[in-house]
Design a protein around this nucleic acid. Sequence first.
DNA 1: CTCGATCAGTTGAACATTCAATAAATGTAT
DNA 2: ATACATTTATTGAATGTTCAACTGATCGAG
Lengths: 178, 178
Amino acid sequence: MTEPEPRWLSDEEQRMWRASMGVLNLLPLYLERDLQQLHGLTVHDYEILVRLSEAPDRRLRLTELAGLSHQSKSRLSHQMTRMENAGLVARESCDSDRRGQWAVLTEQGWERLVQAAPDHVASVRRHFVDLLTDEQKRVLGEAFGTVVAHLSGVDGGATCPKVLSQGTAQKPGGKARV
Amino acid sequence: MTEPEPRWLSDEEQRMWRASMGVLNLLPLYLERDLQQLHGLTVHDYEILVRLSEAPDRRLRLTELAGLSHQSKSRLSHQMTRMENAGLVARESCDSDRRGQWAVLTEQGWERLVQAAPDHVASVRRHFVDLLTDEQKRVLGEAFGTVVAHLSGVDGGATCPKVLSQGTAQKPGGKARV
DNA sequence: CTCGATCAGTTGAACATTCAATAAATGTAT
DNA sequence: ATACATTTATTGAATGTTCAACTGATCGAG
């Protein structure tokens, strides 16, 4: 009994895959650069700020925040420490579960987010969204929706975090408005 | 004179963007996990091995390799040291330009790549390519081709590497065959 | 030829991330 | 109640990445 020949990618698939990896590698560099230069924030900082800004009472339990932002708890813990030192967030202990902690957006964190958001959305448009036609946006939204659902749902054998979407170019505070 | 209202993303764009970021964050985790568990390689290791395997004489100048794999020279230098210690690659000094070094694929590196490739392409299919319809693959290939071209071409003010495609799921050795 | 600018690559320190071990609180079964 | 497993979050060490400084080679203008 011999191994079946692997299903190598077709030329078309190969191009698509390589382009995807290219975007995956390059896009964060540009977003990071813009955000860093203009507002002294990393993309990770920004992501945390957005998630907290959208949460009720601008606070989330650490585990939930870790999930929403696709990070391990350990990593988030270190990152929280850095952001706490920068005054962007604070930790508050949780009454209903005394193991737990709230990550809370500070007033200063909120202000930094509000300042940064317009430039960040412009950056996202310039390097990504505005390069796509309406049809491409539609198809891509559907396609990646499927992929994310799969990746979030798949039992990763406990190695991979099971978690949903992420976003970083929304008006601060979500529908609630500033 | 007042600031113009930023062009926030539409709901449709927002969904698309968040899904893209989700894929961007989650996909590498799965590929990494599979590759690590089955073959003890990182995605970065694999990328280097692929690029070298496709190059004439299975060797590339470090700067070119850095470009192809979207890494800074510094990072590549450290990574080469690790891979050299693991016996996957070797450095050879360059005759025509005595500043330069060749990154050379070792026989062992080649064998590891040949072993890993079928599982890796299966992983890429399972978590990404096979989740897409033919139309989605076609549109996505075009769309991301455009984006990568933009990101590679844009003068990033010297902060961002200007570089082209990347790939990690091809039959080792490219068209040349094993 | 020679001076200065640029290029190839390396290095070490600072910074970020992962990994495994830990502490403390909660849940659950007996 | 008590014991055991699970959950929440933190910590420190190991590993990986970024950043700026550096060496030595090549290029180009005069």
